[in-house]
Amino acid sequence: MYDWIVYLSGEIHTDWREQIIEGAEEAELSMLFTGPITDHADSDECGEKLLGEEINPFWRDHKAAKINAIRTRKMIEEADLVVVRFGDKYKQWNAAFDAGYASALGKSTIILHAPELTHALKEVDAAAQAVAETPEQVVEILKYITRER
């Protein structure tokens, strides 16, 4: 049994998730980390693989997004805290959606991004309980919010 369930949302091209999980384990925090399917091809292709081929890219993406949303909704709803990472390589519209969904559910959020994205993410940041620039800062927040006194 874990004291906290933390959903890790956002970009899938760096090891930020592993850094946070390892930092929490080193600090002996009682946390279960969940997240989306992070294999890009699996996430993009699940609709076709599970429900049949699509010629039109719109319907291909639509099928995959709906199937992925089953997991995302359940895990965000069950989370005590949602960490959302925005990278600089791709526009993470899904991450922005996850941040908004978590906020609408009243979930506490930590937004993680480089300083260069501050202006673009000002509304997302404004809804968050914390905005961090590094995975290490997220770990420090996790340590702080779970300490005894």
Rank of each mutant, 00 (worst) to 15 (best):
I110V: 15
G52M: 04
V139K: 11
F58V: 02
I67Q: 05
I76E: 04
A104V: 08
L105K: 14
R85A: 14
Y2G: 02
A79G: 04
R149V: 08
L51P: 00
E148M: 07
R149E: 14
D39G: 00
D44V: 05
A120C: 02
E26P: 00
G87F: 01
W4V: 05
M1Q: 15
E77H: 10
A114L: 09
Y90K: 12
N94K: 03
Q137W: 04
H13I: 06
A65Q: 06
E53D: 07
S43Q: 11
H62D: 08
G87D: 09
I20H: 09
G47H: 06
E48G: 14
V139E: 07
P135Y: 04
E116V: 10
W93V: 12
Y90C: 01
L29S: 03
A127K: 14
G100E: 12
F33D: 03
V138M: 02
Q92D: 15
V124H: 09
T146I: 01
A79P: 00
P135V: 07
K122I: 10
E28A: 05
C46D: 03
V131C: 12
L81T: 08
K143T: 09
R149I: 03
I55Q: 14
E28N: 13
G47L: 00
D98C: 01
V139G: 06
G23M: 02
Y144T: 09
E123Q: 13
M31F: 15
F33Q: 09
S108Q: 15
E123Y: 15
T38I: 06
R73L: 01
T118D: 10
D98V: 03
P57C: 02
K66M: 12
A69M: 11
H119N: 06
V131R: 11
W93F: 10
D39I: 04
T34D: 01
E140T: 13
A65G: 06
R60S: 14
A96W: 05
A126F: 11
D61K: 14
L142R: 01
E11W: 10
D39H: 09
F58M: 08
H13Y: 14
E148H: 11
L117S: 15
N94H: 04
A120L: 06
R149L: 10
R149Q: 12
F86W: 03
Y7C: 06
P115M: 01
E25P: 00
A96D: 03
I145A: 01
G100Q: 09
K122N: 15
T14C: 09
T109L: 09
V124Y: 06
L51Y: 10
H113N: 05
L117Q: 15
G23Q: 04
V124Q: 04
T134Y: 05
G35N: 07
I55G: 10
I145E: 02
K74F: 06
L121T: 14
D61F: 02
V82N: 10
L112E: 03
D125M: 03
K49M: 11
A95R: 01
D15H: 09
P57G: 09
T34R: 15
E133S: 08
Y7A: 04
A79T: 06
M31H: 12
H40A: 08
D61G: 12
Q19I: 05
V131N: 11
L51I: 00
Y101A: 02
G47M: 03
